[in-house]
Design a protein around this nucleic acid. Structure first.
Length: 201
DNA sequence: GAGTAGATCCTCT
DNA sequence: GAGGATCTACTCA
């Protein structure tokens, strides 16, 4: 397990980063409770030219300020008053690129995830969907701005290789308000993975 | 199995 | 004062 270097996040091509982030392992370690999971679904938000992004048009507010930081930190925000959504900030300073982690496949600390999500048994709903990912990993808005190379929160490479056959891309979910930009194929996921959100087939 | 309402609160206008 | 990068549970069939 190797933590991804800062240089991984600070590249310019967010789609390239998004593809490479698939299959990596997201780990949290709050108060000694380790939970981790493999990233199986995510969406890219392509900065100021992306209508679906909070930073569209260069909007800069207290909330989105984190997106303008250098790559390699977390951007967490509250949606619908209930769900914490975890994003990875990429690119260099002042370019608000971010990648939303939509689903992971649990690896470590499943018992702890069950407690956090108040579920009775572990199934594919445990970490399916962005709201559940943050909940299972214990990520809340207070962690926004947190480094992804810290002791408590990081993304690592455990040698898992995503084959070209598994790599799927589609339009993003839940961004109908974004007009034509909602159609961009910026959502990436691993084919046939149970934890991928959206319609079950 | 499909469709929809309700939860619930921070952020920006 | 409105609405959102969502999820769950409940209804109805």
């Amino acid at each position: 397990m190797k933590k991804l270097p800062a240089s991984f996040y600070q590249r310019e091509n967010i789609l390239q980063i998004a593809k490479e982030l698939l299959g990596k392992v997201l780990v949290t370690n709050w108060n000694g409770k380790v939970t981790s999971g493999r990233i199986v679904e995510l969406e890219a938000y392509n900065g100021i030219i992306d209508r679906a992004s909070h930073a569209f048009g260069g909007r800069r507010t207290n909330r989105t300020e984190i997106m303008y930081a250098h790559g390699g930190v977390a951007y967490v925000y509250l949606c619908y008053g209930i769900h914490h959504l975890f994003n990875v900030v990429t690119h260099s300073k002042d370019v608000p690129h971010a990648i939303l982690i939509r689903a992971i496949e649990p690896i470590e600390g499943i018992a702890e995830m069950l407690v956090r999500t108040r579920k009775k048994k572990a199934d594919y709903t445990l970490t399916k969907g962005p709201g559940n990912v943050a909940k299972a990993l214990g990520i809340v808005t207070a962690h926004s701005g947190y480094s992804l190379r810290s002791k408590e929160l990081f993304i690592a490479d455990d040698g898992f290789v995503v084959s070209a056959k598994q790599l799927m891309s589609t339009a993003r979910i839940g961004v109908d308000y974004a007009g034509d930009d909602a159609l961009l194929p910026y959502r990436f996921y691993l084919k046939d993975n149970l934890y991928v959100s959206g319609k079950l087939k």
